[in-house]
Amino acid sequence: MKLLEVKNLKVFFPIKDKLFGKPTKFVKAVNNVSFEVEKGEIFSIVGESGSGKSTIALALMGIHERNGGSIIFNGAEVNQEDFKTLRRKIQIVFQDPDSSLDPRKRIKEIIAEGLRVHRVGDKAFIDEKVRDIVEKVGLTVDTLRKYPHELSGGQKQRVGIARALVLEPELIILDEPTASLDVSIQAQILNLLVDLQEALGLTYILITHDLKLVEHISDRTLVMYLGKVMEMGETKQIMNKPLHPYTKALIDSVPVPNPEKRNENEEILTGEIPSPLNPPEGCPFKTRCKYRMELCSKEPKSIKLENRVVFCHLYESKNLEV
């Protein structure tokens, strides 16, 4: 069953002209992105920094305004006035637990905020609920009296998870949930997230640039580059046989324990990401792509191939194998 459908999502940020305050240019942070998330799955969005992953998350919550496209949640189209209810059903766990918890609030207030905002239950109910959640995420009840600075990074991230869980959302967006944690803590937080998913029947959108992590836990993957979709499909298939040159380069660029063992035909990403203010015409990856052809200056179409979607001119005639 489809939980979420995103169709042709566009989010453009205006760059203001200092003198007159009129936008003269736009950063097309998310440009025509479509995907679907099945109930109960872990759907990954991967891509380098600045590719628009977090912007998608915030646009889904109505925090960034859409410049186009539609969001369908549980079969119903989401309009601007629906975000208040959507902000119960979808929640986000943020990357940096240091800045995502208000330093002046006790943990109890931080976790309870969602319940207060949505006026769920009385004081006794809230107390009970908060205690319950805090134990579910593996913290002790006496943590509730503390302030964020008294906790370790891993504990803070557990608080971030508890805050997202307290409203009993159906979908949780994990925006780099472990990227700012010590390696030893990362595994604990991941295990917690996987356990919670199973126990509560949650659906996750996992935003990350950690391909190892994606391969490890996610069902399907969307690969983004400069605001556009490059490739989307089952994680296993994508990892085993990437179709898009960008996906291939991304996978080959994952650090390996022994660099000398790298294959001859591996393509490590070289060159800079073009400025998002001035993205290349047509396929955004063409400036770094070794299969570049004249056609690439045209917008690639969405091609359904081998059970996935790929945006690359190479496959338009399907006669070239990569």
Partner: peptide, 26 residues
Amino acid sequence: EETFITAAKVLGASDFRIIFSHILPN
């Protein structure tokens, strides 16, 4: 700019609540 303000918005907090409960104390 702090993420906890975005987090409050994601929870559905009103501008009024964000201003009085998060911005003013900070």
